[in-house]
């Protein structure tokens, strides 16, 4: 069975990447300068005290042992405890995961919803001023840093128009309307860049479709250009676009870290920033590993979606 072999291969790659990511995250955190114990104890600490606390935290043991313990814990759902507060890392992360997931999910959905029609328009009208304007707008959108867009949006919609909150977050379960209002500006700020990048990929994917024989066939049986592109181009273009969207997820997560601190959203990004500045490495490791796993999982799902989109992968023999 071709599809099972395909699935097995992708699953293997997913597992290997996850292992590689964990090694990398661990190695980077282990190589960071500055001893955790020294930072916790502050400036006046004696070398004796530092050595004692290091032993208490288990940081004096060889790295393979610590790595195995960390990975083993995560497999059981235990991400370790914060060096500073002693709290369970996973429990610290849990309420923040939802915030980041909502932000990233809506930003991706919004950017796809904007980029696909705009990119199609840019491809179809590439010889007229409409296509030029669409491409130029995408170029401009790519050049705008997300934090600058965020500040500009806050200035207009929160400060001048008083329509939307400038920052903060309300959980969905507390007040859905307020939850949505608090997410609007962060989502838009994050989506602007992503949509602009995506527009360029959508445009070139559809320009390719326009030169395909099956598009000409669709036109020859009577489809108008736009319906022909939708019915026969979208699925074909989607093959290359889902790859791009999967890869974009990584940059959306990076963008989310910045956007969360601009809008003071209590998400994983702001947690990561706080943990880094405090050198709370068990939280840093946990958050980075979670984000890496999320990116790898999405790309694994993207691989699976190929089989759903492309019947040549799904249905056996090629003649």
């Amino acid at each position: 069975m071709r599809i099972l072999a395909f699935l097995g291969r992708r699953l293997g790659i997913f597992a290997l990447s996850l292992l590689g990511a964990s090694l990398l995250v661990f190695a980077v955190c282990a190589a960071l300068p500055g001893e955790v114990a020294a930072i916790i104890l502050g400036e006046g600490a004696t070398p004796d005290q530092i050595a004692k606390l290091t032993a208490q935290l288990g940081l004096d043991r060889p790295w393979p042992v610590r790595y195995a313990e960390w990975v083993g814990g995560m497999l059981r759902g235990d991400f370790g405890t914060s060096y500073f507060t002693g709290q369970n890392v996973l429990q610290l992360m849990a309420p923040r995961i939802a915030v980041t997931l909502w932000l990233v999910f809506f930003a991706l959905v919004l950017s796809v919803l904007v980029a696909v029609p705009v990119g199609m328009l840019a491809a179809m009208k590439r010889r007229s001023w409409i296509g030029f304007v669409a491409s130029a707008a995408a170029q401009l959108g790519m050049a705008i840093p997300a934090f600058w867009a965020a500040i500009a949006l806050v200035l207009v919609f929160a400060v001048w128009l008083h329509q939307l909150p400038a920052n903060g977050y309300v959980p969905l379960t507390t007040d859905p309307a307020s939850w949505a209002a608090h997410l609007v500006l962060p989502v838009i700020s994050l989506a602007i860049v992503q949509a602009s990048v995506l527009v360029r990929y959508v445009r070139s994917a559809f320009i390719e479709v326009l030169s395909e024989d099956y598009y000409r066939t669709a036109r020859a049986v009577g489809w108008r250009p736009f319906p022909a592109l939708l019915r026969h181009g979208l699925r074909n273009a989607a093959l290359s676009l889902v790859t791009v969207i999967g890869l974009q997820l990584a940059s959306v997560l990076v963008g989310a870290i910045v956007i969360e601190s601009v809008f003071a959203l209590p998400g994983l990004g702001s947690q990561l920033l706080d943990a880094v500045s405090q050198r709370d490495l068990s939280i840093v490791q946990g958050v980075v590993m979670f984000l890496a796993a999320a990116v790898l999982l999405i790309n694994f799902l993207v691989d699976l979606s190929y089989a759903w989109i492309d019947p040549r992968l799904r249905t056996g023999d090629e003649r």
């Binding site: 024989d213 099956y214 000409r216 066939t217 036109r219 020859a220 049986v221 009577g222 989109i309």
Partner: peptide
């Protein structure tokens, strides 16, 4: 009129059909 009153058969049968449908 295309596909109804007049229609066309192209040169490349290998690529003239939508591979995903």
């Amino acid at each position: 009129l295309r596909g109804d009153l007049m229609s066309m058969v192209f040169q490349e049968p290998m690529t003239a059909l939508d591979p995903t449908m």
